[in-house]
Every structure is written in structure tokens, then in C-alpha cells.
């Protein structure tokens, strides 16, 4: 039996086990439901507002937008948090002490974070489509678009999360990066059409994958007329594919280098030192 295949399979199993654990854990359930229920409540209250220049419901536009933006945000932040926390608590060191353990660990994280993010999406979308009108998958083309946008979006965002996660040794410092990420979501036209923002802000939004994921999910779930309020009055599928794929390639090239560097530094004494530090903060 090929040890690498064994490591890969163990990783997939590991991800599955950790997804299952997240479904019976109060903290994780809260993380699944709280943000999504908040979005749904907000959408409910703005059900009478319309997209500027159209008669289309603003909340119906927001739902697919939040699906894409939330997926990007969830994948990025969950991956980042998981890596910093599990480096501090020694999970990563355990993986390092086991043959092909690092491979299994990383595959497990990808499966776990993807799964958890998609579960969050389902929790948002199912009540969402019942709540607002005009959001639907019109034909197999729309299904296909949704599929490739979600998959490519995850592949673009997970490595960025892993890179950010390996930069912070202390989970309590992650807050430093959380604010810019939230700011990025705000400038990415998730909650309000990006065309209403100043042009320089539009350029910042378009540089990152969050905007493109939101655009992609909107293109799959909204009627074609709504493309009129987007930049260039088009869903820009080619550009979406190009930008998401670009980020994915960049991430997949850089992440292994950064992760390897991070893993190399792990040892019993580095985990012990972090434990010592964390204990001091508690006392």
C-alpha cells in the first residue's frame, strides 16, 4: 500500500470526523447559525428596499452575494484560525511526529474547512430562498456556474487562509488581520452594489477573490437583467475565472513554502513555551 495514499485517505477521514464533531458542539453550532441567521434577519427587514436603478428586491440580490462572500470569508478565516489554534495547542506537532502526518493533517483541514463552510452556506440558502423572491437556479447552466464558482472560490481562499494562519504564532493576534478582512468584504460589493462605491474602492475590491466569488454566485442565482448594476454591465465570467484561478495558483505555490517553514519550527519546547505564555495570560 502506498504510504502517501494512506496519508491522503487518513486526511479525508480526519476531515470527516472533524466535520461530524462540529455538528454536535455548541460553539461550532453557534458559529454555523449566528452569522447566517443575522443575515436572514437583515434581509427580512430590507425586503422592501430595491437595487438602485431597478425594481428588483435588494434582499434578493444580497442572498447570493452573501453566499459567495460568506464562503470566501468563512474559508479564509476558519482556515486561518484553525492553523493558529492548532499550532498553539500542539495538534500540528502531533501530526509532525507521525509518518505522513502533515499530509493527513492538511488534507483533513481542507476537507473540514470546506465542509464546514458549505454547511454554513446551506444553512443560509435554504431559508433564504423561502424568504425572498427572484433567487433561483435557472437551468443546468446556472448549476454549472454555481459549482465551478464555489469550488474555484474555495481553492482560491483556503491557501490564503493557511498562509495567514501560519504567519501568526499566537491566536490572540489574529484579530489584527480580522479587521482588514472584514473591511475587504465591505468593499467587495457583497451587501451593496460595488458600482455605487468610489472608483478607487472598486479597484481594491476587484483585486481580491471575495468580490469575484460574490459576483460569480450572483451570476448563477439572479436573473440576467441584474448584470446591469455590475461593473461593465456584465457578469464577467471570464474575468471571474481568471482572477479566482490566479489567486488559487498563487496560493497553492506560496502556501506549501510557508507551511513547510512553519512546520519545521515546531518542537515540543516551542509548544511548551506557547503554553507557558498562554497560562500566564490566564493567571
Amino acid at each position: 500500500m502506498n504510504p502517501t495514499v494512506v496519508g491522503l485517505r487518513a486526511g479525508v477521514r480526519r476531515g470527516g470526523i472533524e466535520i461530524r464533531q462540529s455538528l454536535v458542539n455548541v460553539q461550532d453550532l453557534w458559529n454555523y447559525f449566528f452569522p447566517n441567521l443575522t443575515f436572514l434577519v437583515v434581509m427580512f427587514f430590507m425586503r422592501d428596499a430595491t437595487v438602485p436603478g431597478t425594481t428588483f428586491s435588494l434582499s434578493a440580490r444580497t442572498l447570493p452575494s452573501v453566499l459567495g462572500g460568506g464562503l470566501a470569508f468563512g474559508a479564509l478565516v476558519t482556515m486561518m484560525m484553525a492553523l493558529t489554534i492548532e499550532r498553539e495547542d500542539g495538534t500540528l506537532l502531533r501530526a509532525k511526529a507521525i509518518p505522513n502526518g502533515m499530509l493527513g493533517y492538511l488534507v483533513g483541514k481542507v476537507v473540514q474547512v470546506s465542509g464546514m463552510t458549505l454547511i454554513g452556506s446551506v444553512i443560509l440558502v435554504i431559508p433564504g430562498v423561502l424568504l425572498v423572491d427572484g433567487v433561483e437556479l435557472r437551468g443546468p447552466g446556472a448549476w454549472l456556474t454555481l459549482l465551478w464558482v464555489l469550488v474555484l472560490g474555495l481553492v482560491a481562499c483556503l491557501p490564503i487562509g493557511a498562509i495567514l494562519g501560519s504567519l501568526f504564532a499566537n491566536p490572540r493576534n489574529v484579530g489584527v488581520i480580522m479587521l482588514p478582512i472584514m473591511g475587504l468584504v465591505a468593499t467587495s460589493g457583497i451587501f451593496y452594489p460595488i458600482t455605487t462605491f468610489p472608483v478607487w474602492l472598486q479597484w481594491i475590491g476587484q483585486a481580491f477573490p471575495v468580490y469575484w466569488l460574490g459576483l460569480g454566485t450572483r451570476s448563477a442565482l439572479l436573473p440576467p437583467e441584474l448584470a446591469a448594476v455590475e461593473i461593465g454591465e456584465s457578469w464577467r465570467h471570464l474575468e471571474t475565472f481568471g482572477m479566482l484561478a490566479g489567486w488559487a495558483v498563487l496560493g497553492l505555490v506560496v502556501a506549501p513554502i510557508v507551511l513547510r517553514r512553519m512546520a519545521r519550527r515546531e518542537s515540543g519546547s516551542s509548544v511548551a513555551a506557547r503554553k507557558e505564555k498562554a497560562m500566564q495570560r490566564i493567571n
Partner: peptide, 25 residues
């Protein structure tokens, strides 16, 4: 290793079976 709080959500048997599986080959 001197563990601290890793794998807190895992069950004892489950974790040992999982970590053991890497050694099979």
C-alpha cells in the same frame, strides 16, 4: 509529547485508531 489541549473534541479510541492508521503501510 506533553499534550495540553489538542484534539479535545476527539474520543480516545477514535483518535488512537486514526493516528494508528498512518502506520499501516
Amino acid at each position: 509529547l506533553q499534550s495540553w489541549r489538542d484534539h479535545a473534541k476527539w474520543r480516545v479510541r477514535e483518535l488512537l485508531a486514526h493516528l494508528g492508521s498512518y502506520y499501516l503501510p
